[in-house]
């Protein structure tokens, strides 16, 4: 599904350059649920951004679903992001003047789907996250957990191959975090490949595999027994 080899990335800071990723090798199979952990500055967000085609590596190879991701124009990157990837952010990043349904349907708009079809699919995915009744509410009328569920519905709407989550529970309380995790686990059970960055041990343990980064290299990469979130809810 995903194969990364010898990935390097550095940022220029003034005259010096900061070497953030120092040769990452990672491969993820379909249906996996991987937590990327590390302290801040370990390079975990940079790695996720590169996987999400929001950032470009300096060197190394990145193959997504058999497709080498290399030398992308902005236009092509937009198409790939739309087709292959679903994003879930820590701060939800919903568009504040669009209601829940419109937010969910936005990726479908960029796929060029007709309005009616978009509404239909949007409602379907909102239903999956249990927010059918909230379809016409603006984000400010939703709780944090609800917002994140809308964001998840939006990430799912385009039926991506890979779901990328950047600290999806970072802005939520423990109870809501577990609810969201329960939901993400369900998605994984249904076969979605999920990659998430987190620095919370308990959240990471709800994945099936933990990759630990420190100072730009992978320190540890191990499979774990998944802790089901449902037992805490």
């Amino acid at each position: 599904m995903l194969k990364i080899s010898d990935l390097h990335k550095s940022y220029a800071i003034g005259d010096t350059s900061l070497h953030v990723l120092k040769g990452i090798d990672l491969s993820v199979e379909e249906g996996e649920m991987v937590a990327i952990m590390g302290s801040s500055g370990s390079g975990k967000s940079t790695l996720l951004n590169i996987i999400g085609m929001l950032d470009v590596a300096d060197s190394g190879e990145y193959i997504l679903d058999g497709l080498p991701i290399d030398n992308l124009t902005e236009k092509k990157a937009a198409v790939y992001r739309n087709k292959f990837l679903g994003f879930i952010f820590q701060s939800f990043n919903l568009i504040n003047y669009k209601n829940a349904l419109e937010n969910v349907a936005l990726p479908l708009y960029y796929q060029g789907l007709k309005r009616k079809k978009r509404q239909e699919l949007g409602m379907f995915h909102l239903g999956k996250v249990g927010l059918t009744d909230w379809a016409h509410h603006l984000p400010k009328e939703l709780s944090g957990g609800q917002k994140q569920r809308v964001a998840i519905a939006r990430a799912l709407a385009a039926n991506p191959k890979l779901l990328l989550a950047d600290e999806p529970t970072g802005a939520l309380d423990t109870k809501t975090s577990y609810e969201i995790m329960e939901f993400i686990q369900q998605l994984n059970d249904e076969g979605k490949t999920i990659l998430m960055v987190t620095h919370e041990e308990d959240i990471a343990n709800m994945c099936k595999r933990i990759v630990r980064l420190r100072d730009g290299v992978i320190m540890e990469d191990k499979k774990v027994t998944q802790v089901r979130a449902s037992q805490y809810v």
Binding site: G52, A78, R81, N93, L106, Y110
Partner: peptide
Amino acid sequence: VRKALGASP
């Protein structure tokens, strides 16, 4: 956000 969701420039 729009760009992340696939909006072209």
